[in-house]
Design a protein around this nucleic acid. Structure first.
Length: 428
RNA sequence: GGAGUGAUGGCCGAGUUGGUCGAAGGCGCUCGCCUGCUAAGCGAGUAUACGCUGUAAAGGCGUAUCGAGGGUUCGAAUCCCUCUCACUCCGCCA
């Protein structure tokens, strides 16, 4: 969330951000509403605190008189009235507070000045491409055909057991998914300085609010009926919340975690989109990279986190491109974001496989994650970042499609072979 | 799931016949002194947020915070209620 002080002191900056982001009128209404509430809140706070100060000093007086065996009845009576006024004011302040906080939690982040202006995803600039797009002398099959043909994937039974948008990985398929997990985690922990974490898959509401997944996007996630717990939509949520309400030492930073988890998305509103295959499931696996850094180095960290994700694609020798997200396509909590998109031959298109984001202090402020430069200095908010490194399901799909052969068999990328017991190809 | 105990400042730990408690004491930390080095010793300091005021910085005044929320009271760390979490024992379970 944004700093309430910033809203007060620099309304033009906030309005500029909303303009650049192409925010709908509702967001503007929220902002104007905030200013109205804030005026009343500050006025009432000042007056209430004066009443409190008065009551505190008179109460001392009461204590003194009682000690001296003097009558304090008049003072007590007077303070009873003051107490009533305070109570009424508190009531109103609580209401104001709640609504203001609700607004703050719903106002989007301010895009970094370097983010290109644009209205929608169509205006996201492509920064660069890597790898050779494979040329097939046959019609490349989609991964779901390859996967079911090789008995690696079973969508039919998954929809019997659970429902649509779920999958069973089986046999070599399950092994491949597990190999991807180990490969990705190993690269990030052994070569790129991340600490491995395996987080809870359920989190409480406070954690979801902390990362910015709530209150605005409740329809996108799964919630337990009997308890206010949510299935994590990404490991970003539990891993970022690891340090909620903590004050870190400068020497601890940067903190870098690579977390493996299943991710759960309700995909509300995605009816009809990507209905086949591994691209859009209610549950998928992902290795997520999360960093906590001092503010001055967060943009450097964004570049490095992207490089960490790219390392996986490069080692798997998958063709991909990098795009930068323009202001109009930026997520609610993002300051700046890059997407990595992998080539999928069956659709002859690049598809998102990783997204690397700098949130600056947006999440840190919500979840109260701070650090001290030295023992004497005041706590400051850290900057948080994350990036997928990578989404396993989409990587699985990309391998099947890019490494397929005319007969429907699939070669195993060299980097993965040690994780597959030396297997070099999956034969029909 | 049943029974019980507890939650105080960076840490430990007093305080529970309500008032002089933002909170004793110790440890840690910071600065200064002392000191061949180290250790020890001496002195001072050491929470956060918000509001008002104000500045080049600072500061000043006030309010709130003793797990969270609510209540009683002129006044609550201290009394009452609800919740959360931790620990112990029993049961169950991977």
């Amino acid at each position: 969330m944004l700093d309430a002080k910033l809203l007060r002191q620099n309304p033009e900056r906030i309005r500029g951000a909303l303009t650049r982001r192409n925010e709908p009128p509702e967001t503007w209404d929220l902002l104007e509403r905030f200013y109205i509430l804030d005026g009343e809140w500050r006025d009432l706070t000042t007056r209430t605190e004066a009443l409190r100060a008065n009551r505190n000093s008179v109460s001392q007086e009461v204590a003194a008189r009682k000690r001296d065996q003097l009558d304090a009845g008049a003072l007590i009576e007077e303070m009873r009235l003051v107490g009533n006024q305070i109570q009424a004011a508190d009531e109103r302040l609580r209401v104001l507070d709640e609504e203001m906080n609700g607004i703050l939690l719903r106002l989007p982040n301010i895009p970094h000045e370097s983010v290109p202006y644009g209205h929608s995803e169509d205006e996201n600039p492509e920064l660069r491409r890597h790898g050779e797009i494979p040329i097939f002398d046959f019609a490349p099959k989609p991964h779901w055909d390859l996967g079911t043909g090789l008995a690696l994937l079973d969508f039919e039974r998954a929809s019997k057991v659970t429902g649509s948008r779920f999958v069973f990985y089986k046999g070599i398929g399950a092994q491949l998914e597990r190999a991807l997990m180990n490969f990705m985690i190993d690269v990030q922990t052994r070569e790129r300085g991340y600490m491995e974490v395996w987080p809870p898959y359920l989190v409480n509401r406070t954690s979801m609010v902390g990362t910015g997944n709530l209150p605005k996007f409740e329809e996108d996630v799964f919630r337990l009926e009997e308890q206010d717990y949510f299935l994590i939509p990404t490991a970003e949520v539990p891993v970022t919340n690891l340090h909620r309400d903590e004050i870190l030492a400068m020497g601890d930073l940067p903190i870098k975690y690579a977390g493996f988890s299943a991710s759960f998305r309700s995909e509300a509103g995605a009816a009809g989109k990507d209905t086949r295959g591994l691209i859009r499931l209610h549950q998928f696996n992902k290795v997520e990279l999360v960093q906590f850094v001092p503010p001055e180095s967060s943009y450097e960290a964004l570049e490095s986190i992207m490089a960490d994700a790219e390392a996986i694609l490069e080692r798997l020798e998958l063709p991909y491109r990098v795009i930068e997200i323009c202001t109009g396509d930026l997520g609610f909590k993002d300051c700046k974001k890059y997407d990595l998109e992998v080539w999928l031959p069956s659709s002859a298109a690049y598809r998102e496989i990783s997204s690397c984001t700098n949130f600056e202090d947006f999440q840190a402020r919500r979840s109260n994650i701070r650090f001290r430069r030295s023992d004497k200095s005041k706590p400051e908010y850290v900057h948080t970042l994350n990036g997928s490194g990578l989404a396993l399901g989409r990587t699985f799909a990309a391998i099947l499609e890019n490494y397929q052969e005319a007969d429907g068999s699939v070669r195993i990328p060299a980097a993965l072979q040690p994780y597959m017991g030396g297997l070099t190809r999956i034969d029909v």
